[in-house]
Design a protein around this nucleic acid. Structure first.
Lengths: 158, 158
DNA sequence: TGGCAACTGTTATGAAACATAACTATATTT
DNA sequence: AAATATAGTTATGTTTCATAACAGTTGCCA
């Protein structure tokens, strides 16, 4: 079929209609857009998505261990070490020894960490308002509810 | 505050309530679940998410160039080379020279590629039915519509 | 017509996220 | 006390994604 060669030269726009029929493809495309904008939002704070998530979870769950944090973030423990290392080196969290179990560290946010997180959280809120600004309150609630159902569907099939 | 140490020992479950208030966080969690199940679905065909996407786009847009495919997949051209290399080496697609522009390759799916894709697409359909099975038709349509609006919000802010 | 700019595909390289195996230190179980 | 399990760590490798630089080709335009 050398006829396709003609249409290859200047195909106006390629079609992803087949993939658009898959919910997962639309999820990926939307998440990529949100993810890219979130990265730009966090850059001024020297945070990435993972470090922002870790910082928030430490702030909300003072004293949790690295294993607990790793499980909450669905990250393997070895990979969490570098994240915690970075946050501790920057003075945003502390690794405190636990007397009752000297294997574990109790992670806590510092005053400086809380201050940085407050600013970052405000910026992330603004980012969400921009990305989801077109959605009605009810539509956003329905979206989250549907996403949670999908997430639960996957948990049964690990 | 050495009091936190006590609760650190056996915190029953850590809370991600703050993050759950962010749409993006729920999107990531749901997408991770779908993505993991999709990877398991494609494994028997020796395909990953990216190679399945590329194969589908080549099948639907015969003769497209690597640049066009890269743009459609939101992948940088250097990274697409390895994907196309793999598909071509496996005999699933062909790289044909275009006489009118000898810089570009026209990508086309082979008979064997189409046969593999047919099986994979059927499996992906079953995977979608399982993951989205709990959703009503209207709910699924609303989800896709909302996701597309979010995706469009991001495109204005690159 | 000749030369400069732009584009296609490619190589090399590095960063980031994620996974596994193996180790040390401590705790738990038996 | 010995065997087993757990927390954190190190080392290592894979995958995805980004950037710079290059050769070959095309298009522009002066």
């Amino acid at each position: 079929m050398p006829d396709d060669a003609a249409e290859a030269a200047k195909r106006p726009h390629i079609s992803d209609a087949t993939l658009r029929g898959l919910v997962g493809y639309n999820m990926k495309r939307a998440f990529m857009a949100v993810s890219a904008d979130l990265a730009r939002t966090l850059a001024p704070f020297d945070l990435r998505m993972l470090t922002f998530t870790a910082l928030t979870l430490v702030a909300d769950n003072p004293g949790l261990s690295q294993s607990q944090l790793a499980q909450a973030m669905t990250v393997e423990r070895p990979n969490l070490v570098v994240i915690v290392d970075e946050l501790e080196t920057r003075g945003l969290i502390t690794r405190d020894r636990v007397p009752t179990d000297r294997r574990t560290y109790a992670l806590r946010i510092t005053v400086e960490g809380a201050r940085l997180l407050a600013g970052a959280a405000r910026a992330v809120g603004a980012h969400e308002n921009l990305m989801m600004g077109g959605l009605a309150k009810a539509e956003e609630a329905a979206l989250i509810s549907t996403l949670n159902r999908i997430e639960a569907s996957g948990k049964g099939r690990s």
